[in-house]
Amino acid sequence: MTVMSSDRLAQLSAAGVSIWLDDLSRERLNTGNLAALIRDKHVVGVTTNPTIFANALSHGEAYDEQVRELAARGADLHATVRELTTTDVRNAADLFRDVYTATNGVDGRVSIEVDPRLAKDAEKTAAEAQDLWKTVDRPNVLIKIPATEEGLPAITRTLAEGISVNVTLIFSVERYRKVIEAFFAGLEQAKANGHDLRGIQSVASFFVSRVDTEVDKRLDALGTDEAKALRGEAAIANARLAYAAYEELFAGERWSALAASGANAQRPLWASTGVKDPQYSPTRYVDQLVVPNTVNTMPEKTLDAVAEQAEIDGDKVTGTAGQAQEVFDKLSAAGIDIPDVFRTLEDEGVEKFEKSWQELLDTVEGQLGKAKN
C-alpha cells in the first residue's frame, strides 16, 4: 500500500520528532505559504540564520515598502536590518502562537540568530541576545547563539535572564557536552534569579550533513578502498553519539534537581539536514535520525522529499552508540583527524554566517540608497 505524503510527515511527528522549517521570508508570510505548511505539512516551528535572511532580502520586492518607511524615518543600516528581520520573526511567532499554546510552549518556536560577528565575544553576544529578546517581544522566540568556546558563557548568561535559547553550530559531541553543561548552569542561575523555569525552553542544534561533506572530502583524498567504504557514515554516527550524550547527562542528578523545579529538557535538534551529495538519499538525515523528543529542522526541499519518499520506521537512534563509535574508530584508523574535522567545520560555519551577514548588510544598504533617491 502506498503511504500518502501527509502520512509520512504525520508518522514522523507521531514518532516524537518536531518538524521545523529551516527558512523564513516575508514572501512566505504574505502569501500564506507558511500558514499552509503549518496546516498541511505538520510544521511546528521555524529556524532562521543570516544566510536565510540574506537570501530573503535579496529576492523580490516584499521588503521594499518597509525599507522606504525606515528610510523616511532616517533609520541607519543596522537599525533597518534589525527592524526587517525582527518583524518577520515577530509575525511568524504570532502565526505559530496556537501551536505554542497547544504544546505548552514546547513547539511553535521561531529562532533568530545574534550577529555572527560576535561569535567570539561572550559579553557582546549575551547583550545582543537580550536586545533581540526584548525587540521581538514574543514568548515563543528562541535566540540563537553559536556554540563556540566564547559562546558557551553567553548561553549561560542568556538563560540566566529567563530567555529561551537555540544553541547553534554544534559539530562535536565533546562541544555538545559543554553546551549541556552551559544549559544546566544557565537554568541554575535563572532559578537563583527568581525566574520560573517552566517558561524557559532550549534546543541544541547539532549540524549533520556538513560532517559528511567534510569527512567524505578527506576520505576521497585518501582514495583507499577502506576509506571509500566509510563515505557517508560519519554524520549519522556523530548525531547518534550526541543523542547518547544527551541521554547520559539528562539522567544525572544535576538535571534531576532542575527537573524537580519545573525545568524543560534541552531537546537535541538535527540541523543542516539537507543532503549535499546527490549520491545519497535526500531523506537520510531525517529518517535515519528518528528518535523521540527531538527536532528536525529542514529546508522545504527536504521536507517535500520526506513527504514523498521517507521510510519512517520507528526509533533509529536509541541503543546505537556502540555501532556509531565503531564508525569513528574506523575513521581514525583510516587516517581522518577527527578533532581537526570539527575545528574546520566550526570555523567555516562562523565564517559562512559572517559572510552572509555582510551580504545582508550590503543588500539592505543598496535598498536604503534607492529608497532615499
Score class of each variant (00 low, 15 high):
A35W: 02
A234Y: 11
Y280T: 02
V167M: 12
A239R: 03
V114P: 00
G32Y: 11
D76G: 11
A321M: 07
A147H: 10
V364I: 13
I143Q: 05
S6E: 13
R39Q: 15
A305I: 09
D23V: 03
A237H: 12
L187K: 08
E346M: 14
G199W: 12
D94V: 07
R343W: 10
P146M: 03
T302A: 04
A221R: 10
K370T: 13
A129Q: 14
E150N: 06
A204T: 00
D76S: 09
D40M: 00
L269A: 04
D115K: 04
D216T: 01
T80L: 06
V208C: 09
V364S: 06
A227I: 07
G223Y: 06
R343N: 15
Q279E: 14
A56Q: 07
Q11S: 12
W20G: 03
M4A: 15
A221W: 08
E27L: 09
R240E: 12
V141D: 12
L289Y: 04
S5Y: 07
R198V: 04
E181K: 13
D216W: 07
D64C: 02
L187W: 12
A204Q: 05
Q367C: 02
E233K: 15
T302E: 09
G105D: 12
Y63R: 02
I38P: 01
N166H: 08
R8G: 02
E83K: 00
K228F: 09
D64E: 15
D196I: 08
I155P: 09
D362S: 11
L70M: 09
E161M: 12
L303V: 08
